[in-house]
């Protein structure tokens, strides 16, 4: 019996069989990251993490301390989180609608459209740190109320980011059609409006979600960063900055936690909506 035959004949080892089992694989995909998370929290709580990063429990307080501060300041955290979410959501919605509108225009005038969208894309790649102060300047005369004009400035920054992302993706969704799809509509003598409504619009739906998967987290990030530079002091991002400046690191960590929760929740909601829509239309 040669080596190859012996290899086939031999029973696979237990570890090998386990690692190939689909159920074990599925369970491992959940259990292993959770274990890693618990390990990190354990090290953090036990002060080992602080030693590894050569810092102290004042700069990086234990999770239990952050949690208790979170509870104590819950009302304040919610107020600030609400302001951040308002900015992110308003900017996301207005920006996405504008971006989609721009994509529609571009798809009707493809010669100019594609170039136009690229320019929007280029503008959106300007760092938020640079955009935010410019927007503050532009919105000086919007309102006498600092909180309002500050809000407008922040929304404008988020809007630009969301609009560029949606514009570029939606344009692809409206123009990258199945081969012959446009010819098919032509054989039905379909008017331009019908081609848009029955073919291009539904074809763009998966691309809308591609855009949102980037722009939902980006909107929250952008809202947080633009709060740093805003005139009016509010929002999760601004609280992180204020508390660091005052060397209240534990409180800063409360707001960092809040930012994480907002980001995760937003992404989960997006995933649920996407799953529902995609299932309904079998994309």
């Amino acid at each position: 019996m040669d080596a190859a035959q012996r290899k086939i004949g031999r029973r696979k080892s237990l570890a090998r069989r386990l690692s190939e089992d689909k159920k074990v694989q599925a369970a491992a995909a959940v259990v292993l990251p959770v274990l890693l998370g618990i390990l990190i929290f354990g090290l953090w709580q036990g002060g080992v993490l602080q030693t590894i990063f050569r810092t102290d429990s004042f700069t990086l307080p234990a999770p239990t301390r952050i949690a208790s501060l979170f509870r104590d300041n819950f009302g304040k955290v919610v107020t600030n989180a609400r302001d951040t979410v308002t900015v992110a959501l308003a900017g996301l919605i207005i920006g996405s609608l504008l971006g989609y509108g721009a994509a529609i225009l571009a798809s009707f005038f493809p010669n100019m459209g594609k170039g136009g969208l690229s320019i929007v894309g280029a503008f959106a790649s300007i760092p938020v740190v640079a955009l935010a102060p410019v927007m503050n300047n532009w919105t000086r005369d919007v309102s006498t109320e600092a909180s309002s004009r500050s809000m407008v400035a922040k929304i404008l920054v988020v809007m630009l980011i969301a609009a560029a992302d949606m514009g570029l993706n939606a344009y692809r969704g409206l123009t990258e059609l199945k081969p012959y799809a446009k010819d098919l509509m032509a054989t039905y003598a379909a008017p331009r409006r019908m081609v848009f409504l029955k073919l291009q619009l539904p074809n763009s739906v998966p691309y809308i979600f591609t855009a949102l998967k980037v722009s939902v987290p980006a909107s929250i990030m952008t809202a947080i960063v633009s709060e740093y530079f805003a005139e009016y002091i509010t929002g999760v991002g601004r609280q992180i900055r204020e508390n660091i400046v005052l060397a209240q690191y534990a409180t800063a960590w409360v707001y960092i936690t809040a930012a994480c929760i907002i980001g995760l929740l937003a992404y989960v909601i997006l995933m649920i909506v996407q799953a529902a829509v995609m299932k309904r239309y079998h994309f």
């Binding site: 799809a181 073919l199 074809n203 739906v205 994309f283």
Partner: peptide, 16 residues
């Protein structure tokens, strides 16, 4: 006048 029916090489069905 919709007097042609055209059958393309690929089915061109709308997935949605």
């Amino acid at each position: 006048q919709h007097k042609f029916g055209f059958v393309f090489q690929s089915p061109v069905l709308f997935d949605w």
